[in-house]
């Protein structure tokens, strides 16, 4: 038997001078297998056409639908409404990212800036000769790199981070994960001294307070705890 659920969302459009931040509650009938993404789509199509939220893939791959659900950063498409037995769900936009409107935030610009800041690409000193077979990479090393490459840049780690909440220049677990990914990649010839230039300060690795909300809210279950510790151990020795 289906039940009624109520979803309360922040409504605010910072680009409209007349808009005032307010909470609006929507009541709807829960359907089998309903995710928050489905619930929001239903609200937008039947109750409030003006409510804004982001999505692309609907399958936990693109990372676009991150929002704060009953206080915790989550992906709307991976969150079932049945996870909330009381049937009351409060939605907020992800903090730390510029608010576009209602539940929609600009994670893209933040992630682009982060990528540039930590030089999120392979840096190799040698020219690749594509006529030759490329260097062998140990499967275990490749697996470690691929594991960290699973990050979808949804921003939940940043939204859960107390340092990022207080200090807007903090690079976040997503940035530290990026550096860890390239530091273990044998294709990348950068040294620890080079990586120190990217994250060796209080806005980088030394700003992390190890509260691990990043690890606990990562929808891809990335090993952020151990990889941040790994980078800290390396950077402190430089």
């Amino acid at each position: 038997m289906s039940r009624e659920i109520s979803i309360t969302a922040l409504k605010y459009n910072p680009s409209n001078p007349k808009s005032k931040p307010e909470f609006k509650t929507y009541t709807l009938e829960e359907t089998p297998g309903m995710t928050l993404y489905i619930a929001l789509t239903k609200i937008k199509s039947t109750i409030d056409h003006d409510l804004s939220s982001d999505f692309v893939c609907r399958a936990g791959i693109c990372g676009a639908c991150g929002m704060v659900v009953n206080g915790k950063p989550r992906l709307a498409c991976k969150t079932l409404t049945t996870d909330f037995p009381e049937g009351k769900i409060d939605l907020l936009p992800l903090p730390t990212f510029p608010l576009i409107k209602d539940l929609s935030v600009d994670t893209g610009s933040w992630m682009k800036n982060m990528s540039v800041r930590v030089q999120s690409w392979i840096v190799a000193n040698e020219v690749t000769d594509i006529s030759k077979i490329e260097k062998v990479v140990e499967p275990s090393v490749a697996e470690d790199v691929f594991e960290l490459d699973r990050c979808i840049e949804c921003g939940l780690c940043v939204a859960g981070c107390s340092t990022a909440i207080m200090r807007e220049d903090f690079v976040g677990a997503v940035g530290l994960n990026r550096v860890a990914r390239f530091s273990i990649d044998p294709h990348d010839t950068r040294t620890d001294e080079d990586f120190y230039e990217l994250i060796g300060d209080d806005d980088g690795i030394f700003g992390c307070m190890s509260l691990l909300a990043c690890e606990d809210h990562c929808p891809k279950n990335l090993p952020l705890q151990s990889k941040i510790a790994y980078m800290r151990r390396k950077m402190v020795k430089v």
Binding site: V68, G71, K72, I165, M166, A213, D216
Partner: peptide, 27 residues
């Protein structure tokens, strides 16, 4: 590492209370 202004403290406490994450509360 302490919050050093009203803005930092208010943002941290509101965020921590909303999130109710054990390690964040431990801090």
């Amino acid at each position: 590492k302490f919050p050093s202004s009203y803005k930092e403290y208010m943002r941290y406490r509101t965020h921590a209370k909303l999130m109710n994450h054990e390690d964040t509360n431990l801090w």
